[in-house]
């Protein structure tokens, strides 16, 4: 059903118009702080305790792009959900800017692997939902939503329902919706995990383009080492039992994208952390 034209984006489709804030001025970005933050789950059936995130201190600079990388069950989603306000901390606190996070809020947009688009809304209506809080007029809201859809190459699909779109298109709508909310932070949990390899590369490029124009703080969960190396300025390696950060790699001053040898060294170093002897 997915025609190649739908899923593989050509480069001229990805002309990203930069957006001003709906409330005027450029959208702000903010730093995120975890201070001794920990999450322990209690199983409802057996009462068994799982330390999904051991007490963690970490700061995500405003406008940075950080990948959370690690094997399944190491607490990546838990950390992200703690920042999103979806799970309650067992101890410590999470702050964004100078606000303590206690519940989900429009300052943090979340993009999940399973898109989470409303199937009863058109692509346009899905994006408009993120604009509800700005008190725009109806026509302003539609126009703004449309321009965000255009920025992900879906200007022509505004009236389609999610069920009529390919996975890649749906994820682009989800991305447009997230960007439309003008979040201080963009939280992505394996967002491209369900896409085919080519669509995935196109989406990665699109994401980088959007990010470079908005300077939103991005947390990007993945278990794909190459994806982390391709996208992130910084990689946090996580390990299970209890879930914790085991390494913090700064890639800002490396030239991994041009130097294949250095990239290979970094790749091996990461595997060294993730596959202890």
């Amino acid at each position: 059903m997915t025609s190649t034209a739908d899923s593989a984006m050509t480069s001229n489709e990805m002309t990203v118009a930069s957006h001003n804030s709906a409330v005027g001025g450029a959208p702000r970005s903010e730093a995120i702080f975890l201070e001794q933050a920990s999450v322990t789950y209690r199983s409802k059936r057996s009462g068994e305790l799982t330390v999904a995130l051991a007490a963690t201190d970490v700061t995500f600079e405003a406008g940075s792009f950080t990948a959370l990388l690690g094997p399944t069950g190491c607490g990546k989603t838990t950390l992200l959900n703690a920042v999103a306000g979806f799970v309650e901390l067992t101890s410590g606190c999470v702050r964004i800017g100078d606000r303590k996070i206690i519940k989900p809020g429009p300052d943090r947009a979340v993009v999940l692997q399973q898109y989470a688009l409303m199937p009863w809304m058109t692509a346009l209506a899905n994006v408009e939902m993120a604009l509800e809080r700005f008190q725009l007029s109806r026509s302003e809201r539609a126009a703004r939503a449309r321009s965000f859809l255009e920025s992900v190459g879906l200007g022509g699909a505004a009236r389609k329902y999610p069920g009529e779109m390919s996975g890649g298109m749906q994820q682009r709508v989800a991305l447009a919706r997230a960007m439309a909310a003008e979040p201080s932070a963009l939280l992505m949990d394996e967002p491209f995990g369900a896409l085919d390899a080519i669509t995935r590369i196109a989406m990665q490029r699109l994401l980088m383009q959007l990010w470079s124009q908005t300077t939103t703080t991005v947390l990007f969960v993945t278990h794909d080492v190459n994806e982390a190396l391709d996208l992130a300025e910084r990689i946090l390696l996580m390990s299970p039992g209890p879930g914790r950060i085991v390494a913090d790699l700064d890639l800002r001053h490396s030239d991994l994208r041009t130097n294949a040898l250095e990239r290979e060294k970094m790749y091996q170093e990461i595997l060294g952390y993730l596959l202890p002897a």
């Binding site: 429009p106 989470a116 409303m118």
Partner: peptide
């Protein structure tokens, strides 16, 4: 729950969540 969660995350008020999310989702 993801629908309500997402809508709440985007700052929709409870009355809007009822009309725009819960009602159609129950359709």
């Amino acid at each position: 729950p993801v629908y309500v969660r997402v809508a709440r995350g985007y700052g929709l008020r409870p009355i809007k969540i009822l009309g725009k999310i819960v009602l159609p989702a129950t359709g």
